[in-house]
C-alpha cells in the first residue's frame, strides 16, 4: 500500500479544514474545522508509525521506535479534547457577551 494514499488524504482533509476555519462564521463550526485539521495530522502520525514498524520490526515487549506514531496520535487526541473544552467555553462566553457566536462580530480589537 502506498504511503502517499494516506498522506494525500490527510493533506486533503487538512485543506478542507483550513477552508472551514477561514470561511465559516459560526464559532462552533470553526472548532469543528479545527478538528478536521487535527485529525488529518493524526492520520499522518499513525501512517508514519506503521511505515516505520514495517521497515524496522519491533522485537521484545518494550522499546520500539514505531510506537511513536500512535503515541503522538494519542497526545494529539488529548490536546484536541483540551482544545475543544477551552474553545467551547470561549464560544459560550462569546454567546453570553454578544448574544451571537459569529466570530466576525468580535472585532473590538480592531485598530
Amino acid at each position: 500500500m502506498l504511503i502517499n494514499a494516506y498522506l494525500l488524504l490527510a493533506a486533503v482533509l487538512f485543506c478542507i479544514g483550513v477552508y472551514g476555519v477561514l470561511a465559516r462564521r459560526n464559532g462552533v463550526l470553526v472548532l469543528m474545522s479545527i478538528e478536521l485539521i487535527l485529525n488529518s495530522v493524526n492520520i499522518n502520525l499513525v501512517a508514519f508509525g506503521a511505515w516505520w514498524g514495517a521497515q524496522q520490526p519491533c522485537g521484545a515487549a518494550q522499546g520500539c521506535a514505531a510506537t511513536i506514531g500512535p503515541v503522538f496520535a494519542l497526545f494529539v487526541i488529548t490536546v484536541a479534547a483540551a482544545e475543544v473544552g477551552v474553545g467551547l467555553a470561549l464560544v459560550l462566553m462569546l454567546y453570553r457577551n454578544f448574544k451571537s457566536i459569529d466570530i466576525d462580530q468580535v472585532d473590538s480589537m480592531k485598530g
Binding site: G49, A50, W52, G53, A54, P57, C58, A61, Q62, C64, A65, A66, T67, P70, V71, L74
Partner: peptide, 9 residues
C-alpha cells in the same frame, strides 16, 4: 512487530 499493541504503546 509493528509496535502497535496496547502493551507496547
Amino acid at each position: 512487530q509493528l509496535g502497535q499493541t496496547t502493551e507496547q504503546i
